[in-house]
Amino acid sequence: MTPFLALLTRDLRLSVREGGGAVLALGFFALVATLVPLGVGPDLNLLAKMGGGILWVGAALAALLSLDRLFQADYEDGSLDLIALSPLSLEGAAFAKIAAHWLSTGLPLTLLSPILSVFFGLSGSAVIALTMSLAIGTPAVSAVGAIGASLTLSLRRGGLILPLIVLPLLVPAVMFGAGMVLEAQTGLTNGAVGFLAAFSLAASLLSPFVAAQGVRLNLAG
């Protein structure tokens, strides 16, 4: 087994065992999807209009919940030093961690979204579009979030600062993602799929390099 897969599977195992990051994110997502109709009222026509956007925002926030520990836990217990000295480059390590985070958070959130969309009375085509958009877009959330996680890994209150620096960067993902649902609902082609895929791809390819730099700067501290 390669070092890359070793780190990937370890992070996946940790996410299941410790803190249960995946389960917490799913619970948070489900709560957001419950609270919004409770706040807005049970008008399904209104909720269907908002559903795509609300579920996208909820999924992005839920994915961010566990991101602050992405590097921090390994930094605090000394594992990050050992990872940095391993044959795996820091870029490779960052990529493995992003992939593990997506598999343990982004993917389950995507799979839960069709069930939660019932609360919002989304039409069949809108549900498919939402699920597709989350499948395409959540890697960007993990990837851009990893940049924030690498920059804040040594901060005791990193969990508070991380959303503040990451969410503005995720504006395009939320807009394009919700745009895909809108396309399915209105039938008007708007090109959201292409933009979202491009954003997600670029973020996934570039962010390991930036995150590695963030880790480097913090280890040097």
């Binding site: 195992r13 940790l14 065992r17 410790e18 390994d74 605090e76 217990d77 000394g78 594992s79 030093d81 050992l82 940095a84 000295l85 044959p87």
Partner: peptide, 18 residues
């Protein structure tokens, strides 16, 4: 240089659940 280093740091770098 790091690829030649065997490291024993302050912290034990162990995960409680492993």
């Amino acid at each position: 240089r790091g690829k030649y280093v065997g490291w024993l740091g302050h912290h034990d770098a162990l995960k409680a659940s492993f």
